[in-house]
Amino acid sequence: MIHPTRRSVLKTSAFLAYCCMGQFSAARVLQSESGPLPVTEIDDGVFAFSGADELMRAQNRGEICNVGFIIGKEAVAAIDSGGSVAEGRALIAAIRAVSDKPIRYLINTHMHPDHIFGNAAFDDAGTTIVGHHNLPRALASRGDYYLQSFRASMGADLMADIRIIPPTQLIAGEETLDLGGRPLTLRAWKPAHTDNDLTVFDQKSNVLFTGDLCFIGHLPTMDGSIPGWMDQLEPLKAVNARLAVPGHGPVPSKWPEALDDERRYFEALARDIRKSIADGVPMAEAVKTAAESERLNWQLFEEYNERNATAAFAELEWE
């Protein structure tokens, strides 16, 4: 996700819709207020928490994306720290509930606040933060803006602890981290959802943590390159995983079917915007109707679609 948006009426209805359909609902919300994050064990030593399809705000402590961890013979790697230091601490508590091994790595899948606002929770744990080689630059230019723009929706209490902490171990191309008999393949992607997307593949369980390269249910948000994202769906699909933990969506999801919904959305959006550009329709008009056929397929469509369409228009008119 990118920004808090301002349509409270729609936010509320999206939230109610979520409550009615979600299998977690009230119990999950209560649990997340204190104690460990309620995680699911997907495979032996692979755990993930399923975030809500909502905007980040004080009531959900920014817990809107999927985060997780993998336990090796010697060490643990956390994957994303969540949308607040409170969530980061709850993630650490979830790790400590099942393992006393050192948390050697925190892997940030990309720059967005719902994935990195919890980084400060890992400060005292002797943890190395790992990220895409473009992530420090992205956080340098955006971090301050993120801290300012989420103050209103997240509230001063949650924001007080949050600091932007960039990774110190950087990944270019493909690299392996070993947790002791448990090699993880980290892969840095070309601009897609952002210009700093990183995926984590656990070779032992064949589970892929996609970061926000995969959205299910929650409308994908565009903060990188739409043709870049579409071009990389094939190599992404070719990752030989059995299950995926998407950045947003059910934990776990079947792979590569997990990519089908977003592919259909991108195709609709790109097709509609390209047609408008070719026909000379101005941006302001074009974004009102783009990808309208996808409206009923997604949560948070109203919040993000026109914004995605605006970004897509500004990028695709240079083709």
């Binding site: 955006r142 601009p191 390159s225 026909d279 000379g280 329709v281 008009e285």
Partner: peptide, 29 residues
């Protein structure tokens, strides 16, 4: 104050590139 440059490498590589389009007068819209 919003950071722009969604794709920073691309943005700097193409600095100053221009494009001019002329619209046909009978296009829809």
């Amino acid at each position: 104050s919003a950071p722009a440059l969604k794709n920073q490498d691309e943005a700097m590589a193409s600095l100053g590139k221009m494009k001019l389009r002329v619209f046909p007068s009978n296009a829809p819209g």
